[in-house]
Nucleic acid binder design. Structure first.
Lengths: 326, 326
DNA sequence: ATCGGTATCGATAACGTTTTCGAATCGCTC
DNA sequence: GAGCGATTCGAAAACGTTATCGATACCGAT
């Protein structure tokens, strides 16, 4: 900026005013400065700008990793942000194992107040936030979180999945549940139990185990389940990643899906159609969730009052990973 | 930070040293300060930090939008960054239409020097960059770019695609080409022409038109192609998005794919398996490209010498959107 | 007791912006 | 031609860090 100022023969203060379109600079000066800015290709430093003004017109999406669910969400958010005047910045902890609980709080602290004007947090472990900084949670933490939230009807979806397996004649149905601290995981397990109860089928507690929504941990859980003397004939996995992982493990043990084992997932990430066999699953409108979250965030920042909990519907998507029992 | 300093009874300078593990602080003080940091949940402001030290351990990926290709790339990059000590920040212009040529240069100027230590630019229009700031280009601009680059064998892939259509007996083959400024688009068209020439099939110039790699523009081009009195029996689309768009247009005109029209894409984004009918396409290892790009970037920053152009192989993926002619 | 060396710490200047506010100039009016 | 408001500009402080470097305290040895 001082380069621009020197070349244009004005002070940095004036350049700043021109850049931000503030009142109080002569038309001739404005044009001269803009000319120089263009020639030098000057662009304001985001860091310095936000440090000083606490306003950047950049919104953040915080994700633990860029796995399929988060990236789908990103696509939806990206669509929504276009034309809103905001730019989108996706930030990943990069911690890999996600083991580091509290990464959202840390990342949020690093970015808020500087850099971004608000954030969407995906599957957060936090429930509270600094005052004055806007966040919306997608697929929130269990328990009463004060955060504005976007999620899908996890309970109904789980009932759908379980009923489908029941309708195929399965009775020994296993469930690989998700991250224990997520409301979605809790509700999916609850839906599973409700559907089983309604059908009068007792659930064998050895068949429901935590898989954590992640490839590696789900693989371990699937292996335990399938090594059982009286193994399940069908598995309702907490999400597609777990389901895909389960199919891999089954194949590794010499079982074929769906002949020896039916598997149903949850999410309908694009990858679920790519695997062999294509995965039967419960669709959540992930992209739409991303779009809604971003819209909610923009409304919040703009001071627009409105519904602060958006819940979207789920539906059954039948592909080829399930078949009738026996 | 001054809060921490006050509470711990030291100066901000000392807190900074503790945070960054610099030498010259008594062990007892270190522990006391760390304790306070933990209690207060202090986290350094990324903006201020980078403003001052020009080093953030954050790498950027710049994309025009989060469409399927970019998000696949992100997944790969995310995998690679885990455990590297860096964090990943994806930045989208949010301009939507991508019409604003030069967004990479602008975004780069905003982020470089502050905020990020290096960047991966996806399908860039820029060819040069500030000295001392490291970038690697994925799927670069046409022409001699000085940038370290990761791409796939677009030419060979296009030959594969065209030969496949030829082997099915198609002779009137259309091509919807991509963004004219991208090397990949140019090579795909060149591969198409080479394969046609080798097979002794003349290409009807009215059948090869620019689609721009984007849904809307490709739809317009597809409509033109299919409205032709002697319309093509097969179309090689420049990328999957264009191919999917073409199938939509065809359906809208009462044609069924693949009975009335064969369509083949390029990329193998996850979405290509989700559409109806599932898309036959050329696979580029997109996630691997993202991983390689990030590795190259990290090497560059670390001063590691090595190959600065990485080219990955392509292969044919046969699904259901093509069938023999007549 | 004095001294040299080492450990420990803090004051302070930057980094690149934005904002406030006072100074300077200009064009009018009387 | 003096006075006055409006216009135009720049000096300087502030944002939250980090790096430098000087100041102080402490230690053992003479």
């Amino acid at each position: 900026m001082s380069d621009v100022a020197r070349t244009a023969g004005v002070s940095v203060a004036t350049v700043s005013k021109v850049v931000n379109g503030r009142y109080g600079v002569a038309q001739a000066t404005v044009e001269r400065v803009q000319q120089v800015i263009h020639e030098l290709g000057y662009e304001a430093s985001l860091g310095a700008q936000s440090l000083r003004s606490h306003r950047t017109n950049v919104l953040g999406i915080l994700v633990a990793e860029f796995e399929p669910f988060s990236t789908e969400l990103l696509k939806g958010a990206s669509r929504e942000v276009a034309g809103s005047g905001y730019q989108l910045l996706a930030y990943s902890s990069g911690d890999g194992e996600g083991a580091a609980i509290g990464w959202e709080r840390r990342s949020l602290a690093r970015l808020s107040g500087t850099l971004i004007d608000g954030a969407v947090i995906v599957t957060p472990t936090v429930v509270e936030t600094k005052h004055g900084f806007h966040v919306v949670a997608v697929d929130p933490h269990t328990g009463p979180s004060g955060l504005p939230t976007v999620d899908s009807d996890n309970f109904a979806g789980a009932v759908l999945a379980t009923n489908y397996l029941l309708s195929l004649g399965h009775r020994r149905i296993g469930h690989i549940s998700g991250r224990a601290d997520l409301e979605s995981a809790r509700l999916r397990e609850a839906g599973f139990r409700k559907a089983m109860a309604d059908a009068g089928v007792p659930v064998d507690e050895r068949l429901v185990r935590v898989g954590g929504f992640r490839v590696e941990s789900a693989a371990g859980t699937a292996a335990e389940l399938l090594a059982l003397p009286d193994r399940p004939t069908a598995i309702f996995a907490g999400n597609d990643l777990s389901a895909i992982s389960t199919m891999d493990v089954a194949r590794g043990m010499g079982l074929t899906v769906p002949d020896d084992l039916s598997v149903i997932g949850f999410d309908n990430v694009p990858e679920s159609a790519l695997v062999d066999p294509p995965l039967t699953t419960i669709r959540q409108p992930i992209q739409r969730m991303g779009a809604e979250a971003l819209r909610l965030l923009i409304d919040l920042i703009g001071g627009v009052e409105g519904n602060t909990h958006i819940r979207l519907p789920t539906e059954l998507v039948i592909r080829s990973s399930c078949r009738p029992h026996r």
